[in-house]
Structures are given as structure tokens and as C-alpha cells.
Design a protein around this nucleic acid. Sequence first.
DNA 1: CTAGGCCAATAAATCTGACGTATGCAAGAA
DNA 2: TTCTTGCATACGTCAGATTTATTGGCCTAG
Lengths: 253, 253
Amino acid sequence: MATPPLADVDPSPGAAQTGLHARLLEQLGTAICSGRLVAGSVLYIDELVDRYAVSRSVVREVLRVLASMGLVDTRRRVGTQIRPASSWNVFDPQLIRWRLASGDRIAQLRSLTELRTAVEPQAASLAAERATPDAASDLVGLAAKMWAAGKAGNQDEFLRLDIEFHRQVLISSGNEMFVKLQELVAEVLTGRHHYELMPHHPDEQALQHHADVAQAILRHDGGRAREAMVHIMEQALNEMKSIWEQAGEPRRD
Amino acid sequence: MATPPLADVDPSPGAAQTGLHARLLEQLGTAICSGRLVAGSVLYIDELVDRYAVSRSVVREVLRVLASMGLVDTRRRVGTQIRPASSWNVFDPQLIRWRLASGDRIAQLRSLTELRTAVEPQAASLAAERATPDAASDLVGLAAKMWAAGKAGNQDEFLRLDIEFHRQVLISSGNEMFVKLQELVAEVLTGRHHYELMPHHPDEQALQHHADVAQAILRHDGGRAREAMVHIMEQALNEMKSIWEQAGEPRRD
DNA sequence: CTAGGCCAATAAATCTGACGTATGCAAGAA
DNA sequence: TTCTTGCATACGTCAGATTTATTGGCCTAG
């Protein structure tokens, strides 16, 4: 009932979305994630065809994708039912973006950060075992550049290097799932979703910890690499906490 | 060229697959994951329509789903291109199942286990902070039952309780992503995918560690909960290692 | 000979109408 | 009350047509 009327000639919400499929997917995906479409409620193909003025092909293809994400469940003679959040594939990048853009933003940010906190120390430890000498040297170099950028107060450059550093560590861990996870985190940190992000203070300690991680990996010292990374994560976790502890106020959508 | 001819009247590979959509999705998904369809190679809708004797609707809907998983990329005037493994959404449950059934089985098992090793200690720590008294008591009860089943040598029951125990810990962590992760792990452990799995020896130490985790959570002692869970993970990791270190032999597909 | 813009071939994107099919629900029988 | 049967329904699948974006070649101007 509270669903938007149509999206025929809507140019695009934030970033340009080309193609009817992508646009309808975005519409329905965000509607479900935001809770505008309540779990248990039912959609009908013909109804969507009318409401959004697109063909059945488009609607059906979108519903198939949403079903593969666990957002909906379509059955004969019943229609397409919205599934509860517990059924969603919360690791789907697309779904994560929708949730970050919705009211679940804080919860999603928290889940992702906690996951990162768990994974990166383990990744650092594995990297110490598996990193090639070249990769380890690159890490040491990156840490040095971070130090320079931090001292110079160059925040943009620092953020870029920071992300690159963590990416290299996760790649060196040799675990493809860790790498994919980092891509998600990087997207959030880059502010590609521009929600009020932390200023990202590079302080003395953080710089030292990054250097420690690089050194430990170079020396194949998994224990120290993990330990240093834990400290980095604690700091990141605290920064995030300051965000979501003050965040309880409502937002536009 | 090496792709199978058709799947029109193929009943089902392992488990019953109902509907043309599900069957074609399975076919293409496993073909890509197994490497039979090489990254970079191109498929055409009409070609698939002919080869599998299904309508364009079915093919298009399947390709949309595969695209949302990052397995393929379909562009106008070009066709549908198989994407490299680095682009895949390796957290998609469906994709994980395909990979577990393919030649990537060992690598997938390793990635998932390493991820689990990283996550569960963190989850135990968070659970110690957040678990309700009821949930914590249940955990203690579960640990006790595990002890009993372990002593009695009841392996099936032990496995069931083991999975339930870890599920409860992850649920109590309050992190939805952790829970989803556990669902994947449980699926593998249950042997629902029946690949030769470890015998799963419940030894004295493992039993003690589970009890320790439960006790620590009950007392809100995050540090000890994490520590005990680390021990459990080390043991699980070693069991897994014994699998993939001896596994280098070729398989049917 | 190179760079930039025009044009046609192509394969996906979208639309449309029809028919098949499983299935939830209710009416009727035991 | 319970079970069976039949029907209405909304998705599943099919077939064909049309539109549209893109690619790569071709041509002209520099």
C-alpha cells in the first residue's frame, strides 16, 4: 500500500542506473531492505507489470534474481512472498549496498566491522606463512608510505594507502573469501556510499601497528602479525563504535 | 566445445531438481565452477536455447541469476561472457555448493574452514557480552549433552549437538553475518553434500573446551570464551588439514 | 599514415499473447 | 469430522516480433 507508484521515467536515485532490469531490481531491492515491503506480504507479477509499466520479462527476471538472494520466494498459485531478513544472503554485495542505504545501515555497518575484526588478524597470520618475499616487501613499502602520508597530514592519500595495505594483506593470506570481504569493506571505507563517515585520524600508534604487521609478515612471524593487526582492528572498531553509539536518530527514508 | 550436449530429459544429477530454470541453473553453474566453461569464453542465448531445448525465457532468467552471482557478464552485441573466479560472489550459498561439488572442493573447504577459524572465537567473545542468561544456560546444557554423547560414543548425536552448540554461540553473538556463515559450515559438516568427510573424533580435550566456552559465556568472560574457542578451532583446522593435505589426486570431473 | 567520426551488422533487451501446470481452497461425499 | 474431488488461480514455459545499444569496419579529414 505504501509502495511508490511507478518508476517508468525516473532517471535514477543516486548513481545512473541503465536498463529497466537494473532499475526495477534497485527499486524492489531497496523497498524490501528498507522494510517498506514487509516480510510475508505478497507481490504479483501482473501487479508489478502494471505498477512499474514494464513487461513480464523484466519483472520475472528481477524476481528470479531477488529469489536467488533469498529476498523473496515465488510459488505457483501463491505469488511472490517477501522472506524474513533471516533468510537473506547477507553476504551478497548488492544486498549489502541496499542495506547500507536503508534503515539497517548501522546494523549492517556493525556486522561488517565485527566480521572484519575477526578476519583480518587471522589473515595477517596466514599472510605471514604464505606471502611471497615480493608481496611482503611491498607491504613494508606501503607501511612506509602510510607513515609519510600520515605525518604529512594527507588524509585522502592515507585512506587510499590504508585500503591498499589491508587489501594486500588479505590477498597474501591466500584465502579468496577474505579478499572478497575486503572488497566490501573497502567500498564502505572509500565512502562510495557517502554516509557520514569518521574523519579517519591517522595517529602515531596506528602507523606503528601497520609497520609492525608488515615487518612480522616479512619475517614469517604469524603470531606478531596477528597481534599487531588485532590492535589495528581494535582501533577501527572503536572508531566505528563512536558512530553507531551516537546514531539512533531517524533518517530521511 | 567440451560442454555436454543437452539436458532436456535428464532427470537429475544427485538430488531431484524441479523445473527447467533450476535444472539449467544447476547445469551452467556447475559447468562454470568446474572450469568446463573457461573464463573469457562466450555464450549466446540462442545457442543455449538450442543446446538445452528450452525457451529464451528460461535461458535469460538463468543468465540473470548467474550474472548477479558474478559468474557471467552479459553485454549487448557481445554475448554472455564467463567471468574469472576472482569476480565470483564466493559467499553465495548456491555457488559454494557448486564449488564443493567440483574440482575446487578442497580449496573451498579450506577457505571456509579458515574463515570459520577466524570468526568463531570472535563470536564467542561477543556472545559472552551479549548472550541472555537463558541462551547461556542452554549452551551449558548443550555442552553437558555433548559430553554425555561423546562418552557414550554416539557419533551421530554428537555431531548434531556439536553443530547446534556452535549455532547457538553464533546466534548469541548477535551478528547476523556470523549466523549465515554457520549455516554454510553446518551444511558441510552435516555431510549433506556427502564428500568423504573426517570421522569426527570427539576426544576428551574437545569436550572440555566446549564446556569452557559455555561456562565463560555464562560468566560474561569474553577473553576466556575466545581462548577456549580458539582451541576448538585449532582442532577442527587440524582435522581439515589432514583431509586436504592427502588430497591431491584427480577426480571424475 | 593517423585520428576522428559515420554507418551497418549484431546480439541482447524488451514487449506481447498464448498455453501448460502445479496447487491452494472449497464444495461435496463417506 | 475427515477425506476426496474439482476448480480457479498465478506462476512456468513457449514462440515471435520489435527495439536498442554497441561493436568494428569504413570513410573522410588532418
